[in-house]
Each structure stands twice: as C-alpha cells, then as structure tokens.
Measured scan of single mutants.
Amino acid sequence: NNDALSPAIRRLLAEHNLDASAIKGTGVGGRLTREDVEKHLAKA
C-alpha cells in the first residue's frame, strides 16, 4: 500500500525502479524503512 510510504521512501523506490511489495518492511506496522530498501539493494 503506497499510502503508508514516506515521500523519501517513495523517491528511493522510484530512483531504483523497485516495487514496494517486493520488500519486507521492518518498521512500525510493517512499514518500509530506508534500511529495508538499502538492504534489498545490497542483495540485488
């Protein structure tokens, strides 16, 4: 659900052409954090 993404996370996802649903969020309520996105990028 993109409504739960902060603007910074949306921008980071867009810059790397990532789909938020492909990344498991570890923030409050399962929200994506910058660390989640960076860890996903490091794996790729």
Rank of each mutant, 00 (worst) to 15 (best):
D36H: 01
R34F: 14
E38Y: 15
E15W: 15
L5M: 11
S6N: 07
T33H: 02
K43D: 10
L41C: 04
D3K: 11
D3M: 07
A8Y: 14
S21W: 09
G29I: 03
L13C: 04
S21V: 07
N2L: 13
L13T: 00
A4R: 14
N17W: 05
N2W: 02
L13R: 00
D19H: 09
P7F: 05
T26N: 04
G25L: 03
K39Q: 12
K24D: 06
V28E: 14
T26I: 03
S6E: 12
K43Y: 13
I9H: 04
E35A: 12
G29A: 10
V28I: 13
R10V: 13
V37E: 00
I23Y: 00
D3E: 13
L5G: 04
L32D: 00
G29L: 09
N1R: 07
R31V: 14
G27H: 02
A22M: 15
D3W: 02
G30E: 04
L5Q: 07
G27K: 02
T26S: 11
P7C: 12
A22G: 08
V37Y: 02
E38R: 11
L41S: 02
D19A: 08
V28R: 11
N17I: 03
A42Q: 12
E35K: 13
G27M: 02
E38W: 15
A42W: 09
G25P: 08
T33D: 01
R31Q: 12
H16V: 03
D36G: 00
D36K: 00
D3N: 10
D36M: 02
D3H: 11
L13D: 00
T33S: 05
K43M: 14
H16E: 03
H16I: 03
V28L: 13
S21Y: 06
H40C: 04
G30F: 01
K24I: 13
D3T: 09
A8V: 10
V28K: 11
E15M: 15
L18D: 01
H16R: 03
I23V: 08
L32F: 05
I23L: 10
E35P: 06
A44G: 11
A20R: 06
K39R: 15
K39C: 05
S6F: 04
G27D: 03
R11G: 07
T26E: 02
G30N: 06
D19R: 08
R34P: 07
L5P: 05
V37D: 00
T26Y: 02
G25D: 01
K24L: 12
G27Q: 02
N2D: 14
H16F: 07
R11D: 14
L5F: 05
G25T: 05
L12F: 06
D36I: 01
A20W: 08
L13K: 00
E38M: 15
G27W: 03
R34D: 08
E35F: 13
I9W: 07
R11V: 06
E15T: 12
E38L: 15
G27V: 02
L12G: 03
S21L: 08
K43P: 06
V28F: 11
L32C: 02
V28Y: 08
S6L: 07
T26R: 03
R11I: 07
A42C: 06
A20E: 09
A22V: 13
E38T: 09
S21G: 10
V28P: 15
R11N: 12
V37H: 00
R10K: 10
D19E: 11
A44M: 15
G25Q: 03
P7Q: 12
R34K: 13
A4G: 13
L41E: 01
I23E: 00
L12T: 05
N1C: 07
S21E: 08
T26G: 03
A20S: 08
A22H: 10
T33N: 03
D3S: 09
D36W: 02
R10G: 05
N1W: 05
N1I: 13
S6T: 14
R11T: 07
N17Y: 06
R34V: 15
L13W: 02
D36F: 01
L12S: 05
R31N: 07
R11A: 12
E15G: 07
S21F: 08
L13Y: 02
N2A: 11
A22F: 10
G27N: 02
D36Y: 01
E38N: 07
K43S: 11
G25K: 05
A20N: 03
N17D: 09
R11M: 07
P7K: 09
G29F: 06
G27P: 01
E35N: 09
S21K: 10
L41P: 00
L12C: 05
K43Q: 14
P7L: 13
A8T: 11
D3I: 08
